[in-house]
């Protein structure tokens, strides 16, 4: 099994790695690049704990090969905060106690950000369906949905101000 050499961008940084051709991007991120924020809950695309964005689209990194990402643009939960300033979603997840064990939290944050980037004022139903690919076993999703709603409200306020 010979390795594949890949140059790509992760959270704005140029990254190079060599991986097995069958190795998942999730394993590459965790084991070769040292970014452990994305978690493996299932390896079959059913739990969303490994959510990242690839060229702006939300994906399960367990269902992407490391070999596929030559020249692509990847973002992970580690790229959400702006320096020491947390992303509003991160702040609201903490404020609304939207996590208990926290294992699903990185995936939810990445998925919620992808939703709000696309649709800054989603309905409750739109939030619930947009997050249906992320399993949480602790919270019953209640406080997660509330944290996303609170963030959307804040976004609406700031865009209003800007106008």
């Amino acid at each position: 099994m010979s390795g594949v050499h890949i140059s790509t961008t992760v959270n704005g940084d140029s990254v190079e790695f060599v991986c097995h051709p069958s190795e998942s991007l999730l394993d590459v991120l965790r084991n070769r690049i040292g970014l452990i924020g994305a978690k493996e809950g299932c390896s079959t695309g059913d739990c969303g704990a490994c959510s990242i964005t690839l060229d702006g689209r939300l994906v399960c990194s367990c269902l992407v090969l490391g070999a596929e990402v030559e020249g692509r643009d990847i973002t992970t939960v580690e790229g959400m905060a702006d320096g020491e300033k947390l992303h509003p979603l991160q702040i609201n997840f903490l404020k609304h106690a939207a996590l208990q064990c926290g294992i699903c939290t990185p995936g939810f944050l990445v998925a919620a950000k992808a939703l709000l980037d696309r649709n800054p004022s989603p309905t409750e139903e739109q939030i619930r369906f947009a997050l249906a690919g992320n399993l949480c076993r602790c919270t019953g999703y209640d406080k997660i949905v509330r944290a996303v709603q609170a963030t959307a409200k804040e976004i609406a306020k700031t865009t209003k101000k800007k106008r």
């Binding site: 695309g45 969303g48 959510s51 690839l54 689209r57 939300l58 994906v59 399960c60 269902l63 992407v64 998925a111 992808a114 939703l115 947009a130 249906a132 690919g133 992320n134």
Partner: peptide, 8 residues
């Protein structure tokens, strides 16, 4: 599938 699956 999910939004994640839809992207792929």
């Amino acid at each position: 599938g999910s939004d994640q699956i839809q992207s792929r």
